[in-house]
Amino acid sequence: MTISPALIYGLTGLALFVIGLAGLLLCQQLLRKILAVNVMASGVFLFLVTIAHGSGALTDPVPQAMVLTGIVVSVSSTAAALALLCRIRESADHRDLSQKKGER
């Protein structure tokens, strides 16, 4: 197997997914958790586009369209999450999601 740029970027995408997952599980601040979800999403997007490269010489427009859709979906949910965060912070000092540490 020859090493192509697609391969490197694909592996990077998977690594970003796992790093984001680690952040989501281990970070306590809500803001950090939302950032972590965004990092995860970037990883998935990177992975999706490299599939298009792996399959042939042509770049496949379908995953590119999927990622374009995904980016818009992700900004929408990020905005919702941040609005929710601000509301939570306004109404009470709920910094941590879970009272029980081992829960997540």
């Binding site: 599939i51 298009a52 792996g54 399959s55 042939g56 042509l58 770049t59 496949d60 427009p61 379908v62």
Partner: peptide, 11 residues
């Protein structure tokens, strides 16, 4: 394990 994508069909 890679299948050809949909690029050819799109074209």
């Amino acid at each position: 394990a890679s299948a050809a994508g949909l690029a050819a069909r799109v074209d």
